[in-house]
Computed example of a mutant assay.
Amino acid sequence: MKNSGNTIFITGGTSGIGRGIAEAFHRLGNQVIISGRRKALLDEVTQANPGMHGIELDIQDPQQIKAVAAQLVKNFPKLNVLFNNAGIMPFDDAAGEIDDHVAVATVTTNLLGPVRMTSALLPHLKQQKDAVIIHNSSVLAFVPLAGTAVYSATKAAMHSYSLSQRFMLAGTGVRVVEIAPPWVDTDLVFKSGDSRAMPLSDFIAATMRGLESGTDEVYVEQIQALRDNPGSDEHTFVNAFNQSLKENPIPTGH
């Protein structure tokens, strides 16, 4: 995709990857609009980046999604890029009882949120030049982390959805791009400085290069083996991956 001259809406843009990507695009001269649930955080980010706009949005609320989509089309008629970034990553126990409220919130935020947001904006995006939909999935779409079973499942679903949507939109002028981050040192789980986590600045730089390259999937070289995992012997790979993390757990801040 082109790296400047866009009008870009980013969900979950007040922290972590969302904020990093928003600020990177902002520095390149794009019109950037971010959303989040907390006005104070929106104000903090937009004040630090003059010219950036913020819109309050609870991505779990389908009526808010429709209202925000209508507001965006009215106030930013040149909107041509949607970045579905908002997500939550609660730990769970697939071998025991999973809190239903947390499970529903995870599915609603990580899967239904992007589906609804995309659906609401697609009629407008189809009328734009250089229109792009970016879905933020995860390396866990390909190799699930057993301790975040529901989260991993939602990201696998987003990968599948991206593949289907890309096929269905072929010839419409709307591109579908999937970003599959590795473990990035953000507060999605716990910003710990763990050496296994990719520094946010490094990830943003690599991702911006990937987006500019025009590839349909953007992921860093370090996760190539995990991206290539799906196959008839994936159980062995997944078990080994999870065993290694069981022996050296991801810090959660608790």
Rank of each mutant, 00 (worst) to 15 (best):
D187T: 14
L112V: 05
G171C: 11
H124P: 08
A156Q: 12
S192T: 11
L200T: 09
I134N: 09
A205D: 12
I204G: 05
A120L: 03
P144A: 12
A153S: 04
S213Q: 09
I204N: 01
K191Q: 15
Y161W: 13
F190G: 10
V184L: 04
P181Y: 13
T109V: 00
V132S: 05
G113T: 07
K191C: 10
R196K: 15
P114W: 03
A180C: 13
V176D: 06
V174N: 05
V143A: 09
S164G: 15
A146D: 06
A156Y: 11
L140D: 12
T172E: 00
M158T: 13
N110H: 05
L121M: 04
D194F: 11
D130W: 04
L125P: 06
P181R: 13
S119M: 06
P114R: 07
P114Y: 06
A120T: 10
T207I: 12
L112S: 05
L112Y: 07
A205L: 07
S152I: 01
F190I: 07
P123E: 08
Y161C: 00
S195I: 14
V177G: 08
S192Y: 12
I133D: 08
S164N: 12
A170H: 09
T118N: 12
G193D: 02
S213L: 07
L125M: 10
D130S: 09
L140V: 15
E212D: 10
M117H: 03
P144Q: 10
I134Y: 11
T109L: 01
A153M: 03
T154Y: 01
V115H: 04
T154Q: 02
L211W: 02
G173M: 07
G173I: 06
A131M: 05
S201Q: 15
M208D: 01
V174E: 02
L145I: 13
Y161M: 00
M168T: 11
A197W: 04
R116V: 03
R116S: 09
F142I: 02
V107C: 04
F142L: 05
R209I: 14
I179Q: 02
D130F: 03
P123L: 06
L145G: 10
S138Y: 03
Y161E: 00
S137A: 05
